Simulated assay, not measured.
Amino acid sequence: MIPLRFDKNKKENKRINIKVVATGVVAITLIGIVGLSIGRFSGANPVVPGAVLDGITAIGGNLNKGFTFLQDNFKDILSFKENSEKVEKLKLENEKLKKEIIVLNNKVDESESLESLKKSINFVDEDYKDKAISASVVGKNDGNWYNTITIGAGSKDGVKKDSIVMNGNGLVGMVYEVSKNYSKAISLLDTKSSVSFKLLKNSNFKGVITQNSSLEDKENYKDKGYLYGYMFDTSYDVLPGDVVTTSGLGIYPEGIPIGEVDKVIDDKNKSMKYVIVKPYVEFKNIDDVTIIEPRNIG
């Protein structure tokens, strides 16, 4: 056997060929196995070539599996850096797509808002359309519901006290305070608000919506964001699902949608017919509004 010698001074500059070393180990192992087999089966016992070949084959197979395992894992290690770079690239692309989606959603919201404001103009007479002001809601009261709102338009924009506020779904409320750049309004949910209404199916069936009503258990309906009021006459035929609009009495122009009747309560003791109205306006979410001048009823 020829011993392998290494020059320590040149060891760092040479790379050991793993396969050569492994081949040498296999060769030495095979020679050893053959020698042992010959010694074991010499003399009275004949040599059994099959047993020797089986041993050699088993060892060779295991070594091949070992080389395959090392080769596969070595490839994985080499490709780890490349895969990491791909993951980072995908993360950056994902963040970019998220920002693009946000921009697109904002554009969609703006488009829908404009369409909503255009629709709100259709609720009023021609006399009011030229004087309509579009503005955004910039503040609200504490709590879930929009009882009071601050609008980003004021006297310099033509907003006046008692101006009517609406959006694409229907009547929101009225302006009660105006400054140069801003104005404040109360919604129909506020206890200081009231509006005369009529039923769309019959304009003779009128009533008043007011959150200051004497209706029992009204807090339960208020928590749901519902409106409530009463009919002027208990004989009026009112049913759930009836559409409610402004009647034209008072400062609100006629025909602005308010909501639909959700429940009718006949109070025989008070001789009152109460109505619970589910509003069209989502008083949890008001972004943009249209403001028109108050009616001159003086």
Rank of each mutant, 00 (worst) to 15 (best):
M1N: 14
I2C: 09
L4D: 12
R5M: 14
K10P: 03
K10R: 13
K19N: 15
K19L: 12
V20S: 05
G24Q: 08
T29L: 06
S37F: 07
R40Q: 09
F41I: 09
S42L: 13
A44E: 05
N45S: 12
N45K: 02
V47P: 06
V47D: 04
V48T: 09
P49Y: 15
P49W: 12
V52R: 00
L53V: 15
L70A: 04
Q71T: 10
D72A: 13
N73W: 02
K75D: 00
D76S: 06
I77G: 01
S79L: 00
E88Q: 13
K91N: 13
K98I: 13
E100A: 04
E100F: 11
N106A: 03
N106F: 09
V108R: 06
V108A: 03
D109T: 11
E110K: 13
E112M: 11
E112Y: 06
L117R: 01
L117I: 06
K118C: 07
S120H: 03
S120K: 08
S120Y: 02
V124L: 02
D125S: 10
E126W: 07
E126T: 11
Y128T: 04
D130S: 07
K131I: 06
A132M: 05
I133L: 01
S134I: 03
V138G: 01
V138N: 01
K140S: 01
D142L: 12
N147D: 11
T148P: 02
I149H: 00
T150R: 00
T150I: 14
I151D: 02
G152Y: 03
G154S: 04
I164N: 02
M166V: 04
M166T: 06
G170R: 02
L171S: 00
Y176Q: 08
N181W: 15
S183V: 03
L188A: 00
D190A: 10
T191G: 15
K192N: 15
F197G: 08
N202K: 05
S203Y: 05
V208R: 14
T210C: 05
Q211M: 10
S213C: 07
L215E: 15
E216R: 04
D217S: 11
D217E: 08
K218S: 08
Y221I: 01
Y228W: 05
G229M: 07
M231N: 07
F232V: 15
T234M: 07
Y236M: 13
D237E: 12
L239V: 09
G241C: 01
G241E: 05
D242Q: 12
S247D: 01
G248S: 12
Y252N: 12
G255E: 12
I256D: 07
P257K: 01
I258D: 02
G259S: 04
V264W: 05
I265N: 08
K268Y: 10
M272W: 14
K273G: 03
Y274R: 04
V275I: 07
I276K: 08
V277G: 01
K278P: 05
V281H: 00
N285R: 09
V289K: 00
P294R: 00
I297D: 04
